[in-house]
Simulated scan of single mutants.
Amino acid sequence: MTETTDSGRTAVIVEDDAELRHLLVDVLEAAGFSTVSVGNGIDGIQAVLSYQPMITTLDVNMPGIDGIEAARRIRAHSDTYIVMITAMGEEADVVLGLTAGADEYITKPFRPREFRARIDAMLRRGRVAAPAPVRTQESAGPSFPSARPAAAPVAAPAPAAAPAAPQEVIVHEAGATGTGALELHNGEGQWLAHRNLRLDLDSRIVLIDDTEVDLTRTEFDLLAALLESRRRVRSKADLTLLLRGESYVTTYFVGDADKRAVEAHMTNLRRKIGDNPAQPRFIETVRGVGYRLTSEVTPPPA
């Protein structure tokens, strides 16, 4: 989801097609953005208001409110760059999208290089900053309601709240012992530790011994989730929802493509931390279920 980004270089992806959503995440993270991805317009509006991203991509045809209406509501509160992505390429459709507040309009199908080039060109052009949005109500953070009335007004929350942590976070004070024990150092940051691997939740720094490991945002979030869960198994579906920011919503569909994406991210994470799946030191695979931390005690050789 560490990322080589600053706090202002964030992108929100609003797309109901899981495979395309993952593609957009990969392209934007490769371009140096932190990403927040959701699958419908209401959640997209809430994510934009919570994270105040530099760029927002909107699918036009989505369940609930469509991308055009989502763009109108977003533009009323945010000056984020809006990129409309749709299969409808008629002139009237393009005009409608731009009138709703879009800065760029990309028709499907498109190639990742084209998408990246259009994003870069849009950012080079720049535009006159919109007046500061008028906030009518404050909120503690992002909200993804399960009931989604089509015309529900969206109130703007406090700017750039940090993403909520997973529901179950088990952390031991420094010096705790036991299988898979983690540590919370209250002096500087919140460090989670397993063997010689340490992770700071505040600065998003990962260290093995004293060497920093460069992870993407997604890889960092996966590792943090496993460290927080200790020996509790995290399924691929569970990790998919966590990465989407939907870990506390039970109605979202998780398909095979989502699970394969988690497997790919886990492969990259293991490679970067030097973990061999055949003889894991940090993360072990629970076949047919998911992943968990290894035991603190190394088993004797067979």
Rank of each mutant, 00 (worst) to 15 (best):
P300N: 11
A158I: 14
Q279W: 09
S203N: 03
S34M: 14
V297C: 07
V12Y: 10
E188S: 05
A160M: 14
S247K: 06
L123N: 09
A140T: 13
G245D: 09
P133T: 05
P145H: 08
N268D: 15
L49W: 05
K108Y: 00
P133R: 06
G64Y: 02
A132G: 04
A18G: 06
A140I: 11
V249E: 00
Y81F: 11
T285S: 14
T35W: 13
A117N: 13
E15N: 01
V233R: 13
R204S: 05
D258F: 04
H77G: 15
G290F: 09
P109R: 05
T179E: 15
S143T: 13
H172D: 08
G178Q: 12
R118A: 04
G89F: 06
A158T: 15
M122P: 07
L269S: 10
L49V: 07
D17G: 02
G274Y: 12
L199M: 01
K272G: 08
Q167V: 07
L222T: 10
L227H: 01
H194W: 07
T216L: 08
A152L: 14
T35Q: 12
I68W: 08
L123T: 07
G97D: 03
E91A: 07
E183R: 01
A18C: 06
T267A: 15
L23H: 01
T211L: 08
E228N: 05
H194D: 03
E19S: 06
M84C: 04
T267M: 12
I55Y: 09
T267I: 11
G178L: 11
A156H: 09
M88K: 10
V262N: 10
S247Q: 13
M122W: 05
A132R: 09
T86S: 04
A161I: 12
D59L: 00
I205M: 07
T136I: 08
E219Q: 15
T86Q: 03
F144K: 02
E15F: 02
D221Y: 01
T285D: 00
R231K: 11
G44L: 01
Q137I: 10
A164W: 11
I45Q: 06
G141Q: 10
P109V: 00
A92V: 09
A155N: 13
W191G: 00
F115M: 03
L197Y: 08
Q52T: 13
L98K: 09
M122L: 15
N276G: 11
E90H: 10
D256C: 04
D59G: 04
R125M: 10
L197K: 08
D6A: 11
R9L: 12
A130E: 10
R244Q: 13
